[in-house]
Amino acid sequence: MAQEALEAAGSYPEIDAFYDSLPDKNGALIPVLHKAQEVYGYLPKDVQLYIARKLEIPASKVFGVATFYSLFNLEKKGDYRVNVCLGTACFVRGSEGVLAEFEKELGVARTETTSDGTFTIGSIRCVGACGLAPVVMVNDKVYGRVTPDDVKHIVDEYLGKGGE
């Protein structure tokens, strides 16, 4: 069955397989949420409810954990997640100006996604590449020593690629 059909039927085989493979079921919730987000891109309500039933814990606990940690998303993100580092080293080297330029260039504010679903702007706290401050990450790629003038080039680099 196709993934969509399985989901419609309330079945999430990837979550099942991952959970069953864990040697230690204690404390499995966060690893399972990581896995679910890796598969679905975010944590839709149905997935959270399914995980609660699977792990035999209250749905409120799943929701509580999913909302506590900043890496878990409850909403769908764009194909390219632009994250500007707002750690201290980047901050004192002007990352706020870089963030403002991305907001201007893409026409959406921090935490928002462009209407075509291509970009989401966000911020991160220090990737530990302070020697290259200010730093911007697009998905897993790190850009160092970024100035507001570089923003358009970075955006253009992804615009040509379509939606992956």
Binding site: V127, G128, A129, C130, G131, L132, V142, Y143, G144
Partner: peptide, 13 residues
């Protein structure tokens, strides 16, 4: 031996 610094920052650079 040629050692190349390949931590996160080195790779990003």
């Amino acid at each position: 031996l040629l050692a190349v610094g390949e931590a996160t920052c080195g790779i990003a650079a």
